[in-house]
Amino acid sequence: MKLDAVIFDLDGTLVDSEGLYFESDRRFVERFGGVYDDEFRAECIGMGTLPFCRLIKDKYQLSETVDELVKLKDALYLETARGRIAAFPEMLKLVQAFSVERLPMAVASGSSLGVIREILSLTGLEPYFSHLYSSESVPNPKPAPDIFLYAARQLEANPATCLVFEDSQHGVAAALAAGMRVVAVPFVMTEKGKAQFANADLLFPGGMAGFTAEAVLDWIDSHYCLCEDCSFFEFGLCEE
């Protein structure tokens, strides 16, 4: 099987941001008299900025528009992240390895496009990604497949030959619904999410603590061929 493109989720996958998002989202929710605890947080991981703001607006019957809430949420997050956020070292190694092989790469995230751009700049990942896609650009957020199918179209890649990296159960569900293969590196492995994560093609059950670029590259070598027009599933069967 060919590998034509790699698509990464951003927060909790490429960059160590979930703790920062928890901090900023707690401040965001508390502004409206709400409580943002660990249980609520686990339900919201991978939800995306727009649906999260819609949820908060409905939950607390807010007079602010969704657009106003998105701007406030983004501002609080970037204020929290500046000077503190970093790329996961093993993910950076993996991105660099893909870059050497000239594999097309994209970011497909539930964050706002402006946030995606700034976070990539802050973490030094910006030079590796020219294809940036936000759920703002599609009708339905994850777990719907829209963002991944949109990314594949922009990359001119067959979804079946795309590989996705995700940290949330919503993201894994979206990638599989798009007909793509997925590597899951769970930020939180809840009882509710275990079944969905188990459907991933490659799962790191311990999350980023057990993730290595070498393990992923070894798995790719045994499951993909990088040759032109190759239809063999196992790399070792390729005549090249």
Rank of each mutant, 00 (worst) to 15 (best):
S63E: 15
L94T: 02
E156D: 12
A198Y: 01
F233I: 15
A87N: 09
V100C: 11
A86E: 14
L50A: 12
E90F: 03
K71V: 14
E101C: 14
V164T: 04
N199Q: 15
E156M: 05
D229M: 14
W219F: 11
V172G: 05
S24G: 04
L176D: 08
I220Q: 14
D229E: 15
T190G: 10
C44W: 10
E239Q: 15
G12F: 00
P186C: 01
F148E: 08
V15S: 07
E43K: 15
A174F: 03
D201G: 13
R84Q: 11
F233V: 15
E191S: 13
Q154D: 10
L72F: 01
N199P: 07
L92Q: 11
E239M: 15
L226F: 13
L72N: 06
E90Y: 02
S17A: 09
F32D: 03
Y21D: 13
E136C: 12
S134F: 03
I56P: 10
T161D: 12
T212D: 01
E136I: 10
E191W: 05
S137W: 07
Y224H: 09
L226E: 11
M189E: 12
Y60C: 09
V188M: 12
E101G: 12
I7Q: 02
F32Y: 08
V188G: 08
A198D: 10
I116Y: 01
M180H: 02
P145A: 00
V95E: 05
C53W: 00
L92H: 12
L62F: 06
E64T: 08
H170Y: 15
G46C: 02
P205Y: 02
L120I: 00
F52Q: 06
E156V: 04
D229W: 13
T13D: 00
A108Y: 06
V66H: 02
N140E: 12
F52H: 02
L76W: 08
V172T: 05
P89S: 06
G114T: 05
L132R: 11
C227R: 09
W219M: 10
G48I: 05
Y77I: 07
F187T: 12
T212K: 00
G193K: 07
Y21G: 13
I56V: 13
L155V: 00
R31M: 10
C225Q: 11
